[in-house]
Design a binder for these strands. Structure first.
Lengths: 337, 337
DNA sequence: ATGAAAGCGCTAACAT
DNA sequence: ATGTTAGCGCTTTCAT
């Protein structure tokens, strides 16, 4: 069977070399901006390449050079925040001279499948944005290739982790509410979601530090709008004056229910989210929230991956990034209640 | 400079062959499930491969065989609906024995850059999910590789298009509202968004067909929640009894404003969205909407791409898929107004 | 059924 | 500065 031509421009280095009347090695040098070619030749080769519409074949290039300068990224199509992270990863990778190859987790494609796909591409390292997935898999993977987990706390000692400081995030949220005069501050948590335990702890610590230990009230929530809405119903019997939510999505669900029940925000109820995702920034939601520094996280993740690839020593496996408070319209001074 | 080992399992075909005591050609045959090996050998080779944790190198494989069986997908990290499409594409590609490689459009990575990245991977075809981007680029691209545009109407005759029937979608929306007794039915459009013109036209046609030409009322909207909210304010002066929105996101914005203004949904106002995206399905939004058949669209897009790759004749460049009505909680019988 | 050998498009030694 | 040559890991004739 003859190889398909598939209508594509199968222009090779050799074609460019022939047209520029030089050797293929020289063309390779020019295309890579490597030293060892006269300006005149460079000029001529570049012209020939663009005349022919030449595109270097990444596979051949990388096959030959042994390393790929390719970073695999596992992400989920369901999380808006992953989109922000992917954005940052592309930027950071480009700065470092690396390429990115994406592999999605979907409802019908598991984290394991996504990772397998990446391994076949011979990435130099893998960055995992997934929120769930068995940690054991990660250890196995880490034996094959350096792994950096982004945003999720993992216990595995074989992988690097870059993540947000969830405890500090809830300290910020509670302190902000306290500074507005609130005392009856509840927390709707993330249920069994990874990270939920740490945010809960941050909430408790901050309440205690502010002398509000007796006011501690944790309601089981979750990651979704619907779970936030459900938690809201549980809170409504005896509404607090403020609530720190597990994330922005659940905060949105709570807002909807609270307003439906006739509570004005922030006059009757102040609400703080977590993530600062696109949702929170929407004009009509305009949610006060805890921002994760996506740029810092992605830059560090890429840096860390490259450190591993290039065999540099790394002092600590986990890097924790400080979050920041974003004040918008859903928090205000405690009213007379 | 020695090629980096990057700590990875650099297990090759040759290693497996050595361990199984056969030739590399035979290992290749077994790994590809190609005919020409005895069951006993197959068994032995497979064992050797798994003992060694062998992973075929896709680049080398594809480099040699000339074609890639690789489909490039350009998508945007900002659109939730693209996530659904990517999900479907993975499934359809797998059924067809093709691999997918993703290239994201982000706020800092243009459609052109995303496409360039794909070309360097020597995909056999490219599927573009982008909503914006210059059509001229697509023609250029189409000269290099078969291109299928998914979901966006394009005038370019050089590319294939698979998309939803937007006009039919608005027919469904209006007919549904009419069947509930509504007459004062407005439409908030998508502004300059591609596809907006066709949905507007569908709305007008359906209104006329139902003898409601005099009730036609089109308000400029957009694709986002904020734009929907703004349109809502424009409508509130003289609220209709029902409104067909450009999409689910803008419908959400409108819902928020309408409820804030004391309008009950669906008692005072019925609302129909468009897309049936995750937003619409959320319990507390529960939006009646027009569903696009993501599965059909993705299956057809993959089919079409493969038809082109394999040089089959294609009867028509554009395929239009029928949408369907999803009735949820935001539409009801017209009240006494 | 199995193996030897050529070569995909490219890069990296080594020549000149 | 430029050319020659030998592979990277795999698939694919073509022998056996």
């Amino acid at each position: 069977m003859r190889p398909q031509r598939s209508g594509a421009s199968r222009v090779t280095l050799a074609d460019v070399a022939a047209r520029a009347e030089v050797s293929t090695a020289l063309v390779s040098i020019v295309m890579r901006d490597a030293p060892g070619a006269s300006p005149a030749t460079r000029e001529r080769v570049r012209k020939a390449a663009s005349d022919l519409g030449y595109q270097p074949d990444r596979r051949a290039r990388l096959l030959r050079s042994g390393r790929t300068r390719l970073l695999g990224v596992v992400f989920s199509v369901r999380h808006a925040f992953h989109g922000d992270l992917v954005t940052g990863l592309y930027e950071a990778a480009e700065r470092a001279g690396y390429e990115l190859t994406l592999s999605a987790i979907t409802p019908s494609r598991s984290e394991a499948q996504a990772i397998r796909g990446l391994l076949a591409e011979r990435c130099d390292a893998v960055i995992v944005l997934s929120l769930q997935g068995a940690s054991a898999q990660l250890s196995e993977l880490a034996a094959q290739v350096p792994v950096v987990v982004l945003g999720r706390p993992v216990r595995e000692s074989a992988v690097d982790v870059v993540r947000n400081d969830d405890r500090a995030g809830l300290h910020l949220a509670v302190d902000h509410l306290v500074s507005l005069g609130h005392e009856r501050i509840a927390h709707v948590d993330g249920g069994r979601h990874p990270g939920s335990a740490e945010r809960r702890r941050g909430y408790r610590e901050a309440m205690e530090r502010n002398g509000l230990a007796s006011q501690i009230r944790v309601v089981t929530g979750g990651v979704s709008e619907a779970e936030g809405a459900e938690a809201a119903r549980a809170l409504l019997d005896e509404p607090p004056t403020a609530v720190a939510m597990f994330n922005d999505r659940s905060a949105t669900g709570l807002l909807e229910v609270a307003r439906g029940a006739g509570l004005a925000v922030p006059e009757d109820l102040s609400v703080v989210g977590f993530d600062d995702d696109r949702l929170a920034r929407l004009g009509y939601i305009n949610l006060t929230t805890i921002g994760q520094d996506a740029t810092a996280m992605t830059t560090l993740a890429i840096e860390r991956a490259i450190d591993r690839i290039e065999g540099r020593e790394v002092e600590q496996r986990a890097v924790v990034i400080a979050p920041h408070l974003v004040v918008r319209a859903t928090t205000g001074e405690r009213g007379n209640d």
